[in-house]
């Protein structure tokens, strides 16, 4: 079992290396000369050569990749092309904000989604289940910005309960904290809960079709016990997977939400970096997001291994 877990974690690290290679290849090797582009119209042969040497662009591709990778591992993410600030410093100032948003969203959405998903599976076919299915399908079918803008219109414009803009810098009281976080978290939750409910429900219903569930019913086991004691333990793997995938969806959703609410997080940093074609910032932010994503997916797979007796006791 330990071997399996170690192998899975090793696979995650290998994937991350491959991902870094792909990101570096797309951003640094494929497009035109960054030095020429940076200098634009004002470029002369000498200035371009000089900048190329300074940026290390005159080295062969694989050396540049290894330099970059080495920098990532030692915390040197390079300097922003836009304002010459170290990228590590930029990320360092924004990351806590994003983590806070993600933590608040996860804390609300995971228990809520599991509760709704499990109960919908328990009473499948009922009016409650149909309503949940219809509602979640609608939410996952619309763009995140529609959910967020709808939330702004309802809560900030019509009801005037909450502020439409948030800035995590000047929080002094609990009430303020709530006012700042409520709308972004609510919008993110809508999207993620819908996603997670659908996958959780499907995972449990899949188990409820198994012959051992019919056997449990024939043993006189009641409907609650059938779901909680018989189906759920077998659905832990798929559910962990659903939670990881939905939370990784949070990584994507957060990009839109931080932009709409002008929230000073790392996703906003990345979007601004893309607009100004500030490649060192984009590379570093992309690596942070991909590492988070792979960590989530790997954790889910490890949970699935640990929850499966066939893999646990070999």
């Amino acid at each position: 079992m330990l071997k399996l877990v170690a192998a899975r974690i090793g696979l995650g690290i290998v994937s991350l290396l491959l991902v870094s290679l792909a990101i570096f290849a797309i951003t640094s090797l494929l497009p035109g000369d960054a030095a020429e582009e940076l200098l634009g119209q004002a470029a002369t042969r000498e200035t371009v050569e000089g900048l190329r040497a300074r940026l290390g662009l005159d080295l062969p591709g694989h050396l540049r990749y290894l330099n970059w990778l080495g920098g990532l591992l030692t915390g040197d993410f390079g300097r922003s092309l836009a304002n010459n600030v170290p990228v590590a410093q930029l990320i360092g100032s924004r990351l806590p904000n994003s983590l806070m948003l993600a933590a608040a969203t996860a804390a609300v959405s995971v228990p809520l989604a599991l509760a709704i998903g499990i109960t919908a599976a328990m009473w499948r076919g009922s009016t409650y289940d149909r309503a949940v299915s219809m509602l979640t399908l609608s939410v996952v079918s619309v763009p995140e910005f529609l959910v967020a803008t709808a939330a702004v219109i309802v809560f900030a414009v019509h009801l005037r309960w909450l502020s439409a803009l948030s800035a995590a810098t000047d929080i002094t009281s609990v009430g303020q904290f709530f006012r700042v976080f409520a709308l972004p978290v609510f919008s993110l939750c809508c999207v993620i809960v819908a996603q997670m409910v659908r996958m959780t429900r499907a995972a449990i219903i899949d188990q409820l079709r198994a012959p051992y569930v019919e056997m449990a019913v024939l043993k006189g086991v009641g409907p609650f016990r059938v779901v909680l004691r018989h189906a759920l333990p077998n659905a832990i793997g798929p559910i962990a997977n659903a939670v990881a995938l939905s939370l990784s969806y949070l990584l994507g959703g957060v990009i839109i939400i931080e932009t709409i609410f002008n929230y000073p997080g790392i996703a906003k940093l990345m979007v601004d970096g893309v607009s100004t074609r500030d490649l060192p910032v984009v590379q570093a932010c992309a690596m942070v997001f991909c590492a988070a994503y792979l960590a989530l997916v790997t954790t889910a797979d490890v949970v699935a291994i640990l929850s499966n007796p066939r893999l646990r006791h070999r």
């Binding site: 991902v19 990584l251 994507g252 984009v282 992309a286 997001f289 991909c290 994503y293």
Partner: peptide
């Protein structure tokens, strides 16, 4: 293993 929005950006 690269989230879709990240890849797009």
């Amino acid at each position: 293993s690269i989230p879709s929005k990240m890849f797009a950006l």
